[in-house]
Every structure is written in C-alpha cells, then in structure tokens.
C-alpha cells in the first residue's frame, strides 16, 4: 500500500546552496539532527536524536540515490519501522527553490499509526472526520 507524507517548502536561495544543506553533515545537523551523512549511494549513516527511556535516539539510514542537485533519497529506519525519505529540489527562478519532501514506507508496526494518505480527496475527508 502506498502511504505518503509529503511536505513542500519554498526557499530564497540557490539550488546548489540548498543541496549543501541536504548533504553536508555539519549543515544538516543544524536543521535536522546530528549525523555522519555522505552523499554517496550505498553509504550507511545515522541521525542521532536525544535518547529517551523508550528509544536510543538512533535513526539508521542508507543513501539510495544521489542526483546532485536535483534529487536525494535515503532510508530512514527506527526500530523495525523502515521508511524512505526523498528530497526533490526545483529551481523556481528569481532566486527561489522549492524543496519537496516525501516520506514513504509507513507500516503498522506501531499499532495503527501511519502516514498521510496519497489518496486525493480521502485526505481532506479524513481530516474533516478527525476534526469532528
């Protein structure tokens, strides 16, 4: 089944600069988490969050795709839950770049928790339902 979380954000920057923030470990640490990331396909890395009593804070990843400066994809595994995170960069011109995030692979490991559905109207219907 296809469950997709999708987020877009527009930045005033160049596509090259945005790319460094997605791939340079020290820059990545400033807005995501501490890591030993390298933009090399097959590279295994970790994001490290604050550990708590339920979780060691480790997110395990493997780089799946590097298409500089357009697309970057890696796995994002926490415990038995293994997701794929894909970043797509679009140069909008006029010094603007759109960053598109897709996170897929949500399963039922945590009971019934999961992702936003890529099912068009269904999403808004669900939100309406949940707002009741």
């Amino acid at each position: 089944m296809s469950l997709v979380l999708s987020v877009d954000h527009e930045y005033k920057t160049t596509i090259e600069k945005a790319w460094t923030y997605l791939t340079d470990p020290s820059k990545l640490a400033k807005w995501v988490l501490e890591n030993d990331f390298k933009a090399v396909e097959g590279h295994r890395f970790q994001f490290r969050a604050e550990p708590n009593e339920y979780w060691d804070g480790v997110i395990n990843g493997e780089v799946l795709l590097v298409d500089e400066p357009n697309k970057l994809s890696y796995t994002w595994a926490v415990g038995e839950e293994k997701h794929t995170v894909t970043w797509t960069l679009h140069d909008l011109g006029n010094g603007k770049v759109n960053l598109h995030l897709e996170q897929t692979g949500f399963s039922n490991v945590h009971g019934l928790e999961g992702a936003r559905y890529g099912w068009g109207n269904w999403t808004s219907q669900l939100e309406k339902l949940l707002a009741q």
Binding site: V7, A18, Y21, W31, L99, L101
Partner: peptide, 16 residues
C-alpha cells in the same frame, strides 16, 4: 513526522 519536517524545514529557512 509532518510536524518534525515542517519545523525543520522552517529552521532551514532561518539558516539560509
């Protein structure tokens, strides 16, 4: 995760 990424992506905007 939606909140996690939205927060982080906003932080990135500030960094830039």
């Amino acid at each position: 995760y939606s909140k996690f990424w939205r927060t982080n992506m906003f932080r990135l905007e500030q960094l830039l």
